[in-house]
Design a protein around this nucleic acid. Structure first.
Lengths: 137, 137
DNA sequence: CTGTATCCTTAGGGATACTG
DNA sequence: CAGTATCCCTAAGGATACAG
């Protein structure tokens, strides 16, 4: 538990991992635009941190050289089941949850399938390097 | 995710929930003795916070009136699957993990069973109000 | 034993200007 | 676009003494 907390116990690391795993964000600007409003110095710091802990890999677009993107590693993606568990807990107990979002239903009915779907989907995104629009998760 | 982070995204709340859910800690002194070394003011603050967010309930021992204990609510216990997910991820990726701890094997072989076992066990602990010795989780 | 109340320090991080 | 470099400030929290 201590190991896990050390890596994404920090608010900003947690947000970044959420964004990269659940929202398909890839670019510096994507992360900057997060609703939580991270500032540039903190973002750079956390991206480096997550790179060092092998949660993200940094890539420079070979054609447009000023374009950089970040991808989640296998290690980061292994976090998905736990994250989905957290999401389920949240929709279950957050008073602000009005009606069960669609993903909640999907996960309740077929959790393994939901994870599998996500895994397949994110692989496609990674492979094609498309700037994915936010998933309706 | 924001809701979850708001409740136990904080380092100390996270530690307290771990202690109460995974180590069966119940008393103020138990928490104080945590390896992480929380100080009294912070501990009191976080206990109150967790009580307000309905993760813990505070009970005064009816016979020994200076004795107080805290129990995890149902809401807190619903966190267990997600926590187990985090633990599995940690033992899988923490370089410090030498040989797979016994619980890791149990959870890999039968995750649902592990959760069920824990649920049953913690209920017993709660029912008897025994100051449980740390589980070998 | 279970907290409260203070004091004091420091590091985290927001704002902002700047650069290749 | 993707950062780097400062400046500044405040709130989180450690230490400690005290209390019911």
């Amino acid at each position: 538990m201590r190991y896990a907390a050390g890596i994404f116990g920090d608010k900003w690391c947690f947000v970044l991992l959420r964004d990269v795993l659940l929202h398909g964000k890839r670019y510096y600007g994507d992360f900057l635009g997060s609703e939580e409003g991270i500032s540039t110095n903190i973002l750079a710091n956390r991206l480096a941190q997550l790179e060092k802990s092998e949660m993200l890999t940094r890539h420079v677009d070979p054609v447009k050289r000023s374009r950089v993107y970040y991808l989640p590693t296998r290690k980061a993606r292994d976090l998905l089941p736990a994250f989905l568990g957290l999401m389920m807990w949240s929709v279950q107990h957050d008073p602000a949850t009005e009606s069960p979002p669609s993903f909640a239903k999907a996960m309740t009915e077929d959790p393994a399938g939901a994870v599998a779907w996500y895994e397949a989907n994110i692989d496609k995104v990674n492979a094609t390097l498309v700037d994915a629009s936010p998933k309706s998760l």
